[in-house]
Design a protein around this nucleic acid. Structure first.
Lengths: 300, 300
DNA sequence: TAAAAATACTCCATAGGTATTTTAT
DNA sequence: ATAAAATACCTATGGAGTATTTTTA
């Protein structure tokens, strides 16, 4: 099998049209270069150079070979460039999954800083439910996913980076104005509305309230927190939302009130999920540190 | 420096998504393949595969690397194809120089057979005077040249493949009809017209007639045999043409006659001229053998 | 526990270096 | 005679093999 070294030596000879000069340029002895060229010619059965003690000429076949060799060399150089790119953090594009109850609320808070620190970082986001994302991470379709724990991640690794509580959201008219905290036993559970099955937020909310299931008739099959909130505005019931969603869902002039859920917490923990031997762990940790920093800035 | 072997092993792993199967496909041990992949990853600082005892996954960086590796592999394959092509004769294009007093008369007689035997043979022809062609051969611009000897080819190699005599061409009206041979002393030298200086045909004609120079006033600066012949038709004088040009220059219904020049011959010898260490000598010898065969067919 | 990759260790092939010879001008 | 490539010869590195260990599903 011919080698890249042989090709690079041949290219050096083409460049210098002189074996010794080419050998110097390659930082090898004239002997080494000469035997490498000879061996290349022998292996391919192609005379690349005509040479005597005074001049070196490229044969017609040699021209073709050297053209191809040049192209190969460029692509090998590309590999080394890729290597360099890879050594600098966050330069390879990442596919990141995120669940719908985290993405719209977390990412606007943290990604601007990521873009600021790593302007060239390319990020492809996939929004889906936890079980889908876990599968995609396992298959390698995703580099990682951002989920809410607790969740059964079956052998994947979790890097937790944030934890938060739920807030009970109700209409002003249905709530004592001085209420600071509320416990699940003080709620009208039958008026509580949550996302439809499959969304982990529902499970976490139920768990926070120490409930097995919601036996209210309020299963409106809501698929987003936003529509749930709209229903609260319409006085159809109350709901529970994670803290990081509050600023987007409830504005100051809103007719809604958000009251901290007074149950032992934290009610959900946010984490990056990766395969145990994923290559870009460093990148994930870097992202995580930025996320943490930004979230801490917001609460302080 | 990374090696083609490493890249081919990586491609095999991508194909089989399994180290042992890939190793088998490469006819190496699992150990050898494993260390080669590991070394590649170490050298580039890129994890190409995520692997455990149950599954192999390609990393995002790995995808990029493998794409480039695939492209490199294809081009290396091209080199081996080139090698195969090169081992079969007359498959690499050749640049051949030929002088004006040979090309138009010789090539139509021999190239059809070359094309017949080697339909894929690509041939680039350059027509110029001997000294130009010799220089081009020396510089490597031409693979070889077809010249008429004697000629000073200064260290180049000559493969002679044909020899021929000159014929004296005159108008019917100026020549005894039963004349079969003519010697130079029987010619009216002062009426003899030859090509202008630089054309070796003039030198050969003079040499054949044992003349130093043509002191006729007939130096019309003719640059082609054809125009010379037209002048003979116009009864401006006579000329000498090589045998292989007769059939094209003098047709049966022509008012010209061609008489063999009765001087010790041969009057010129045709040869391929190559550099002593030219790589495609085999191809030249092959061409030469076809030329010889065709020319012999024509005279018999 | 079993399957697969990684590792330990040994051996040989090959690349590289120095010194010398050959070759062609 | 000289300049340059080829060759001879020795050394060291690296790649390959076998056998074994580690890992994790």
């Amino acid at each position: 099998m011919i080698s890249l070294k042989q090709l690079s030596y041949a290219l050096a000879v083409q460049e210098h049209m002189h074996f010794k000069k080419a050998a110097d340029a390659c930082n090898v002895s004239q002997s080494a270069l000469s035997t490498a060229i000879t061996e290349l010619e022998k292996q391919l059965g192609i005379q690349v150079f005509e040479r005597n003690n005074k001049q070196v000429l490229v044969t017609p076949s040699g021209q073709i070979l050297l053209k191809t060799a040049q192209s190969i060399k460029l692509q090998v150089d590309d590999l080394y460039k890729l290597s360099q790119m890879n050594k600098a953090p966050l330069t390879t594009p990442m596919n990141i999954g995120v669940i719908p109850t985290i993405g719209p609320y977390l990412l606007p808070k943290v990604l601007p800083q990521v873009r600021k620190e790593f302007p060239d970082f390319k990020l492809h986001l996939v929004e889906d439910q936890s079980h889908v994302l876990v599968e995609k991470v396992r298959k390698g379709d995703l580099d990682c996913a951002i989920l809410a724990l607790p969740y059964d991640i079956e052998g994947l690794m979790a890097f937790e980076f944030w934890k938060e509580d739920f807030y009970w959201v109700c209409h002003k008219d249905e709530c004592p104005s001085n209420l600071q905290e509320i416990s699940s036993k003080d709620m009208q559970i039958e008026r509580l509305m949550l996302l439809k099955d499959g969304h982990c937020l529902k499970d976490h909310a139920l768990a926070a309230c120490s409930l097995e299931k919601l036996n209210s008739n309020a299963d409106f099959n809501s698929t987003s927190l936003n529509t749930l909130i709209q229903m609260v505005v319409g006085k159809l019931g109350t709901t529970l939302v994670p803290e990081m969603a509050l600023d987007q869902l409830i504005h100051t002039e809103s007719e809604l009130r958000a009251v901290h859920l007074n149950e032992p917490g934290p009610h959900r923990r946010l984490a990056f999920i990766i395969r145990p031997n994923y290559g870009g762990t460093m990148n994930v940790e870097l992202l995580m540190s930025i996320f943490k920093k930004q979230l801490n800035n917001l609460v302080s």
